[in-house]
């Protein structure tokens, strides 16, 4: 760890997180290592992007952090306190207020039989705010912030367009004034023109409310645009973590290189010359040498074995 990362305060600290899913019994037992020994930190006020292909475990990571899944191993610390494993009722209440989630599908994640007011204020009610007038004031306040109006509060989700529904999802997450928001593919279900509206809204709210965001997505251009630091996941492992620009300019891990080389860009002349780098996981020989996180550049970690780290360093030196 360099001096820089030490001075910044980690809001979320994930240490050796493992989430396994098993199916079958006895001889047919099959274990899927959805998240396998993942460690990273998210600092106060930053946006941490988590990218990877479908099935790489990025969503499971987010859901395990917010306690939707029980971790198989490892620990999660939030604001210095351990939040994985058994917690008391008070601690859970405290946590749910401070950590919120925004889901991918704005249709499926809103209860069709609740009004927007009920949806948005539910978090407040659960957290013990009994006075409806008080709740309503906060609801109106947050609706205004996400670009909806007072009149919307009495309506039902089906009366809204996709972009507006995602705004409701954002309002619901932010109404309790959380310090960490986990956004799981918040824009991938939206149309291009609406995507830009929601991304700009996120940027505005991030500044106004001083949010820390874990941004999970597969669209690398969007992640690059939106995140301060980015982690790349593959097959349950976190392979590389670096500042957004650094990761795109100096990718170290061969998988990161392959992923970056696959992004199509809206530039026909560039596209004609773009060469895709293929990634073959068989190039690693981890039976002989166990991989670990190494800080290869300042604030730039890579998951590799010792000999690989030396090779990567030589490549970077060129």
């Amino acid at each position: 760890m360099s001096a820089d990362t030490n001075t910044r305060e980690a809001l979320l600290d994930v240490r050796g997180l493992k989430t396994y899913f098993s199916s079958g019994h006895g001889g047919k037992k099959h274990v899927v290592r959805a998240v396998d020994d993942v460690s990273f930190q998210i600092f106060k006020g930053e946006t941490f992007g988590l990218v990877g292909e479908s099935g790489c475990g990025k969503t499971t990571t987010g859901r395990t952090i917010i306690r939707l899944y029980n971790p198989t191993g490892g620990e999660v610390y939030f604001d210095g306190k351990k939040i994985s494993g058994k917690l008391g009722r008070n601690e859970i209440n405290q946590l749910t207020r401070n950590m919120q989630m925004i889901f991918q599908d704005p249709v499926a994640s809103l209860n069709p039989r609740m009004t927007i007011e009920e949806i948005v204020s539910e978090g407040l009610r659960v957290n013990g705010m009994r006075d409806r007038a008080q709740r309503l004031e906060l609801v109106y306040n947050i609706l205004d912030k996400v670009g909806l109006t007072k009149d919307h509060a009495t309506r039902y989700p089906h009366e809204f367009s996709g972009g507006q529904r995602q705004r409701v999802g954002i309002a619901r997450a932010l109404v309790t004034n959380p310090s960490l928001v986990i956004a799981d593919e918040p824009v991938s279900a939206l149309d291009v023109s609406i995507q830009a509206q929601v991304i700009n809204l996120f940027n505005k709210l991030k500044e106004e409310m001083g949010l820390t965001i874990l941004f999970i997505a597969h669209n690398l251009s969007v992640v690059k645009y939106f995140s301060d630091r980015i982690g790349v996941m593959y097959m349950g492992k976190l392979l590389e973590v670096a500042d957004a620009d650094d990761l795109y300019l100096h990718p170290v891990h061969p998988y990161t290189k392959s992923l970056l080389s696959a992004i199509p860009q809206p530039d026909p002349l560039f596209e004609r010359k773009r060469a895709r780098v293929a990634y073959d996981p068989a190039i690693h020989h981890y039976e002989e040498e166990r991989p670990q996180y190494h800080e290869i550049l300042p604030n730039h970690q890579v998951y590799a074995s010792q000999s690989e780290v030396e090779r990567y360093k030589r490549e970077l030196g060129q």
């Binding site: 023109s193 995507q195 940027n203 251009s221 690059k224 530039d267």
Partner: peptide, 14 residues
């Protein structure tokens, strides 16, 4: 309205 890899400025939203 779509960011590319070099975009830093605020997106143009419709």
């Amino acid at each position: 309205s779509m960011p590319d890899l070099d975009t830093k400025e605020q997106l143009f939203s419709i």
